[in-house]
Design a protein around this nucleic acid. Structure first.
Lengths: 212, 212
DNA sequence: TAGATTGTTAATCGATTAACAATC
DNA sequence: TAGATTGTTAATCGATTAACAATC
């Protein structure tokens, strides 16, 4: 919105979902207001950082009072674009793809699954979570007739690059890549690489260094 | 190893798996040596950062030559503890748990799945990927008789905290948490929180800001 | 040896924390 | 009003980049 202000650092953006999570929790507990200080203790960060982070997007609080939890929750949801009815498809209906299709948290955050694709003739036509698996050959056709904002890629590594290009060529603006390869588009395509084995390796490192 | 040297920053540790991935790729292509400069172009980071990162762990390169890919790959694997025969269990055999049990990348990186647990009587005794699902009530007993380094938690959010405490109480040193809640142990327990919906939200934000 | 490239120190940049005036 | 707490500027800290002497 305030587009002339300085660019929001990546680290701040990455923290937004975490704030959103904690605020959702407070909301559930029927807590109406919270100060940056109280929140900082819960989240194990500094109050200063919280105030700085929020102020990239404008003042959501009130001096002497703090932040209204419900309002702040809504605002951060807005900033994250959770109220935009974003749609997504899953390409690759293997174990991970199937699990994600059943992952109801995505829907709870406002993302709507509108298609699942695979190239295995044996599973095309079967349903996951009420959605029929379509032939991956028909992706372009599907994208011509349906607005799709995000594609989750759970295809084999060899197929990622080609799939990604087909999708972005048809207007998909965001990719969530689960394959071992790293995707990188510098154009107008947003990419999140989710490397599950990276997390396991990091964990392994930490365990090692914990017993130094 | 060089334990008196300064602590390695978290950002550097998080980059190690990425180096490992790119080096593995080079190895596959039968590339014997690489300079920090050539690697920097491939990875889209600065050569300076690469050299700095590696030097937290000692000099792996040679002036005038660069880095021996195979050697460096091995060293980073060592640093990450991939050659330690680390074992892991999966607690929670829902969609995600099952997908991860079948996720062969973990095994490829040197981690060995030794148990799967759930509390649903209907699936206890059935097998995933050759491993029988055990009753979650028997976790403590299992841990008494088997060394388990890491536990992957794919249990419902309400059960996470209790499960985590049972596991760490029995000596598990690392937790990979997939539930929406945030786990945090300050003791000797390493934790990686993997929030899939966070990535989707970040993606949503980026898409929004791309069309500013 | 000359050229290349590392390891490492120094300079810069950016993010976090501290401080405090503004204000509810 | 007095007290609390934000929004925001200034100070600090840490990470990234640049530079270059060491050396293969």
């Amino acid at each position: 919105m305030n587009d002339k202000s300085k660019k929001v650092p990546e680290v701040v953006i990455k923290r937004l979902p975490r704030y959103y999570r904690y605020l959702g929790e407070l909301l559930k507990q029927d807590i109406k207001r919270i100060s940056s200080n109280a929140l900082s203790e819960k989240m194990n960060v500094t109050a200063s950082q919280i105030r700085q982070d929020f102020n990239y997007f404008g003042g959501f609080g009130q001096q002497g009072y703090g932040y209204n939890v419900e309002h702040l929750y809504g605002e951060i949801g807005d900033i994250l674009g959770l109220h935009d009815d974003d749609t997504f498809i899953i390409v690759g209906a293997g174990n991970l793809g199937r699990a994600l299709a059943n992952h109801d948290t995505f829907e709870k955050r406002g993302f709507r699954l509108v298609g699942i694709f695979d190239n295995d003739k044996n599973i095309i036509g079967t349903k996951i979570n009420g959605i029929e698996i379509s032939d991956a050959d028909n992706i372009e056709d599907f994208l011509k007739h349906n607005r799709v904002d995000i594609a989750i890629l759970t295809v084999p590594r060899e197929a990622v690059m080609e799939t990604a290009e087909r999708l972005t060529g048809c207007g998909v603006k965001g990719l969530m890549n689960f394959s071992y390869t790293e995707l990188d588009f510098d154009r107008d395509v947003a990419v999140e690489n989710v490397h599950l084995s990276d997390s396991l390796m990091t964990l392994s490192y930490k365990i090692k260094s914990n017993k130094n």
